[in-house]
Structure formats: C-alpha cells, structure tokens
Simulated assay, not measured.
Amino acid sequence: MFDPTIFENIKVALENRVYDLDTLERKILITNRTDQMDFAILSRRFGLEFILLDNVDLRAEIVLSTSLRDLAGEILEMKGEEPGCSLTLRFVSTVQSDAVPYREIGQVLHTIWEQEIDVTQTVSSVLGEEPAEFTYTIEAAFHTRIDEEHMQEIGNFLVHVLRTMEALGRIIEAIQE
C-alpha cells in the first residue's frame, strides 16, 4: 500500500487551507498553482500564489519544497535522517519607484515572524522601459524545516501570512503615492 510522503501530506493540508481562504472565507484569490517534480535532481516543489481581495497590487506565494535526500531518507527509512520540507514565502509587487524602504520592510517581517526567517529583497526593472516600472520581490525562507508535526500550525501560519501581506501592502501603497 502507498504511504504518502511528508511532502504530500503537508502539501494537501496546506492546499486545502489556502483554498478555504479563497472559496469559503473569500479573503484571497488564488492566481496560480504549481506542482513540480524535477527529474534532474529528483526534488519536489509546490507553490500557491494569491492576492488579497482588497489589495491586488501585492502577490504572495507559499513554496513548499523537498529534496531527494529527504524523500529517500523517508521512503527508505534511513537511520539518522530527519526528513522534512523547506518553506519559503515570496511577495511580489510592481512599483513606480526604486526607493523601497528595505529596513522598514525587514523590521515588519522580523516583527511578525520573529527571527525564524532569512529575508532577501530584490528590485529589478527592464532597462529602457518607459515609464520605468520596478518589480519588487521579498523572499522569506524559514530556518525550521517542517514535517507532519507542524500540520496543526498551518492555520496560524496562514493568519501570519495574511498579516504580512496587509503590512507590506500598506508600505507599498505609501511608496506609490
């Protein structure tokens, strides 16, 4: 009999909760879904991208991933291995200015998520494009790898994701003015 992996179990639980925020609670709108298997390195990646219904200028993506080592360690029940998944949040917005308040955004993220994340902020644009638009990306990678023991925390995790989106939305709105 097939026993789903940690990745599959968390993916299904996370997907169900996010879809509830879209279809039942009507707080978000899911704009993209990816479910990938990389055959070159035998890894898995699942992503759900969405917007808040009251702020379409900011997209969020929750990315769940796992590696061959984790999958093999779990399926083969290898001693000493602690299989799990990595979790990353990505927030993307298009802004009219490259003057982004990096420190303020970093402080907001670390206030909401404490010190559980590594934050990367990137601004990019197409050279010569007029009027200039900048794509602003914030990536928060979690230090803690997750497994089925964390499944009961998904609801609270999503509350924090929505809080983060609201806070970032206010900052981005302020720089657009």
Results as ranks from 00 to 15, higher is better:
Met1Pro: 08
Phe2Asn: 08
Asp3Ser: 14
Pro4Leu: 02
Pro4Asn: 05
Asn9Val: 13
Ile10Pro: 01
Ile10Arg: 07
Ile10Trp: 02
Leu14Ile: 07
Glu15Lys: 03
Glu15Pro: 00
Asn16Ile: 12
Leu21Tyr: 01
Thr23Tyr: 06
Thr23Asp: 12
Leu24Val: 12
Arg26Cys: 11
Lys27Leu: 13
Ile28His: 00
Ile30His: 01
Asn32Arg: 11
Arg33Asn: 06
Asp35His: 04
Phe39Pro: 08
Ile41Val: 15
Ile41His: 09
Ser43Pro: 06
Arg45Trp: 00
Gly47Phe: 00
Leu48Gln: 06
Phe50Ala: 08
Phe50Tyr: 02
Asn55Met: 02
Leu58Gln: 04
Ala60His: 06
Ala60Asp: 03
Ala60Tyr: 09
Glu61Gly: 11
Leu64Lys: 00
Leu64Tyr: 02
Ser65Pro: 07
Leu68Val: 09
Leu68Ile: 09
Leu68Trp: 07
Arg69Met: 06
Arg69Thr: 15
Arg69Lys: 15
Gly73Cys: 02
Gly73His: 06
Gly73Lys: 09
Glu74His: 05
Glu74Val: 14
Ile75Gly: 07
Met78Asn: 06
Lys79Asp: 14
Lys79Gly: 09
Gly80Phe: 04
Gly80Leu: 03
Glu81Thr: 15
Gly84Met: 08
Ser86Met: 11
Leu87Asp: 01
Arg90Val: 06
Arg90Leu: 03
Val92Ser: 13
Gln96Tyr: 10
Ser97Cys: 07
Tyr102Val: 14
Arg103Leu: 10
Ile105Arg: 01
Gly106Trp: 07
Gly106Met: 11
Gly106Glu: 13
Val108Lys: 08
Leu109Lys: 07
Ile112Val: 04
Gln115Trp: 01
Gln115Asn: 13
Gln115His: 14
Glu116Gln: 15
Glu116Thr: 04
Ile117Thr: 02
Ile117Met: 07
Asp118Cys: 03
Val119Ala: 03
Ser124Pro: 08
Ser125Leu: 10
Leu127Asn: 11
Gly128Val: 05
Gly128Ile: 04
Glu129Asp: 07
Pro131Leu: 10
Pro131Phe: 05
Ala132Gly: 11
Ala132Tyr: 04
Phe134Gln: 12
Ala141Tyr: 01
Phe142Met: 00
His143Gln: 03
Asp147Val: 08
Glu148Ile: 09
Glu149Arg: 15
Glu149Tyr: 05
His150Tyr: 04
His150Ile: 02
Met151Leu: 11
Met151Phe: 01
Ile154Gly: 08
Asn156Ile: 12
Phe157Asn: 09
Arg163Gly: 07
Ala167Gln: 12
Arg170Pro: 01
Ile171His: 09
Ala174Phe: 04
Ile175Phe: 10
Gln176Thr: 12
